[in-house]
Simulated assay, not measured.
Amino acid sequence: MTDSALTIARQRPSTPLRRALALEWHRHRDRLLLFAVLSVVIGVIAVVLDVRLGWVALLLAARLPADLADRFPDEGRQLRSALGISRADAVRARTLVVCGGQLLLALGAVAAILLTDWPPDERHWASFDVRQDSGLAPTPMALVDHLVDIGLWSGALLWTHALVGGSAFRLGERLSAIGALASFLGACLLAGLVVVASSVLVGWALPQPGPEAMEALETLGAPQFVLAARSGQAIALLVALGGGALALTLAHRRWRRRA
């Protein structure tokens, strides 16, 4: 056991979970602090230079479970054993640390979205435009459009952690950063498909107005289309964010049982 681990052992916080969190912080603090600095830098650059860098923070957050996986599993097991930390507590601590690191990076992406100016004709990947050959001038996105975007990629991060995070706790298996990134991009793609499919289904389910009513609706900015699109976004948010949180909770319980 290394001298630094002996120091942790002498301090020995009161509970195994606290000791596990202290060990995770000791082993990964340099990387976590680097991510915190990068999150701030990304937000500042986005605000000052008006450059869209939020995607950098999201990709770093998606691969975080792989970045914090034990490079030398035997050493990690020896340290946990010396500190009296069970594998279940190690799983809890690692999951909390990964979620905390992802939150740090996500805040940088949120700052890049909410604190910058968006031209009227610029849209998020899951946003919509009510102009449908109606001659209406482009309108800037509202706060709800930004929140939908944040909610969808946050859900994609949760799904990614739930799908690939377990590999970090299985003996003899290395978690691939490329696999984590592929899972995140796949989750984002599926979220976008859910938005489109849900919007179409809701549009079909809505009662069709008559010709005069349809003309009036188009004059007002196509509220029926807006209702269908917003409903599709709400359904996608439920699947992405709510489903991702549930998937990670169930996966975490499974990781603990197998520990």
Rank of each mutant, 00 (worst) to 15 (best):
177 A>N: 06
156 A>L: 12
153 W>H: 11
195 V>D: 15
112 A>N: 13
33 L>D: 01
104 L>K: 10
25 W>G: 02
208 Q>H: 09
4 S>K: 06
199 S>K: 11
196 V>Y: 14
199 S>Y: 07
203 G>M: 01
133 D>Y: 12
208 Q>F: 00
240 A>G: 00
222 A>V: 10
60 L>S: 03
144 V>R: 10
163 L>T: 08
49 L>F: 15
168 A>P: 00
6 L>Q: 13
212 E>R: 10
17 L>Q: 02
13 P>H: 05
159 W>S: 05
121 D>K: 13
253 R>P: 01
57 A>V: 10
50 D>N: 15
94 R>L: 07
127 S>F: 15
253 R>F: 02
80 R>L: 06
144 V>Q: 07
180 A>L: 14
237 L>C: 09
150 I>F: 11
256 R>T: 04
202 V>C: 04
47 V>G: 03
257 R>A: 06
106 A>R: 07
25 W>P: 01
131 R>E: 14
243 G>R: 00
44 V>A: 08
122 E>P: 02
208 Q>R: 09
167 S>T: 13
56 V>Y: 03
121 D>P: 08
48 V>Q: 03
34 L>K: 08
238 L>P: 06
241 L>G: 03
96 L>K: 08
215 E>N: 05
171 L>S: 12
39 S>P: 12
45 I>Y: 02
188 C>V: 15
34 L>W: 07
82 A>G: 07
5 A>P: 01
90 A>M: 04
241 L>C: 04
21 L>I: 12
20 A>C: 01
180 A>N: 09
46 A>T: 14
30 D>M: 04
202 V>L: 11
224 Q>D: 04
